[in-house]
Amino acid sequence: MTQYLIRRILISIPTLVAISIVIFTILALAPGDPLSELAMNPAVPPEVRQRIRQSMGLDDPIPVRYVKWASSMLRGDFGYSFRSKSPVSDLIRQRLPTTLYVIGTAYLVSVLIAIPVGVLSAVRQYSIFDNIATTLAFIGFSLPTFVTGILFILVFSVKLGWLPMIYRTTIEVEGLAGLWMKIKQALMPIAVLGLFETAALTRYTRAAMLETIHQDYVRTARAKGLSERVVIMRHAMRNALIPVVTIVALSIPGIFTGAVITEQIFRVPGMGSLLISAIRDNDTPVIMAITIIFSTLVVLFNLIADILYGVLDPRIKYE
């Protein structure tokens, strides 16, 4: 097991290096410039913009830029944002709590709803409950978040006026009222993301469960005279959860990098909106930092998912 772990970790190093080279090269080759917004301002003539461009090192050869970036990265320094001139790590530190709160809650809610609903609708296949659950899952899965997001805003903010459409991280109201304001503004983004995630996860759980409850060992368990509860929980569900765990584990990195579209719609200042505005501004240090964090997390959670297999299914052994 230890050997397996060491081997996996060693393999992941060249993977990450390769990812960073590819992303860096694409970004360096992509056209655009962090100063384009001032291009049409006569007070900032082209030669001034060009000098600032050079001072950012954007005109250096790509390998030189990569080595510079990689060496400071190895020292744990993500560099400075071209835009705000502040350390990238500070920007990420400001965004991460919001993303974890909003996106994390949405994922948690969806796991808590999707697994029981999926299991139940598989056990009671073709019942009314199953029909309703699959229909809702189908709808939730088909509606993209930018549609549900705007729909929610129109209904709950514009028509009913119940919920705010702008997410604020600066609420300072004390006590329960403040807490309620903080929860209230997160309801719509959580619901939008939660709906989508729940729908997807319900379908996976249901499919996996349907496959296992027709297996021989489930029939055997019933024949042994075990109660239905034990048959489902201990024998069927545990096996059905193996693919579901993979999906849940692999989507956890997404909690850290945020949901680009949903964050944009509700102006949630999370990692997703940081990434998208950095891409728009050609703010290479910020884009690189976020993508590297994301790739590291993906590699890490792949490993975790593989290890969890062994825990859930004793037949899987690692040498």
Binding site: P31, G32, D33, L35, S36, E37, A39, M40, P46, R49, Q50, R53, L58, D59, R280, D281, N282
Partner: peptide, 18 residues
């Protein structure tokens, strides 16, 4: 053309306004 490209001062890019 994407605005950030069109208005960039990148001498290597043929798609700029300049």
């Amino acid at each position: 053309i994407e605005a950030s490209v069109f208005f960039s001062s990148d001498p290597g890019n043929p798609d700029t306004a300049a």
